[in-house]
């Protein structure tokens, strides 16, 4: 499994990561090596084995559908990079 230059660009885009052009060859090599390693999984005889999502196969616990958290809006906004009037600020999305 060898990734092309464009594969790494596409994955980085999907992952929302800025990767500079001169970093790409190193990622090409290491990602290809990792994919070769995980490719060994193909050799495992899984037959009718069910996929395992939880080590103890317990079901998701539910709780009553009631408000349990206090309003902490100000505390959360205080650690935001940019906020104003109780809102998070981001670059303009709609022209």
């Amino acid at each position: 499994m060898t990734l092309e230059h464009t594969d790494v660009e596409r994955i980085a885009h999907l992952a929302r990561l800025q990767i500079s052009g001169d970093e790409i060859p190193a990622y090409q090599n290491s990602l290809s090596a990792i994919l070769a390693l995980v490719g060994e999984l193909k050799l495992a005889d899984v037959g009718q084995v069910l996929p395992m999502a939880h080590p103890l196969d317990v079901a998701q616990r539910l709780r009553p559908d009631v408000v349990s958290e206090a309003d902490q809006r100000d505390r959360f906004l205080a650690i935001a990079p940019h906020s104003e009037a109780g809102l998070y600020l981001v670059p303009k999305v709609i022209e």
Binding site: I11, Q18, L31
Partner: peptide, 20 residues
């Protein structure tokens, strides 16, 4: 892209990309 590209180191980016 730039916040994540600047904020994460090489190994973290590598694993995010493998996962993606």
């Amino acid at each position: 892209k730039r916040s994540r590209g600047e904020g994460f180191g090489a190994e973290v980016k590598r694993r995010i990309m493998v996962g993606t």
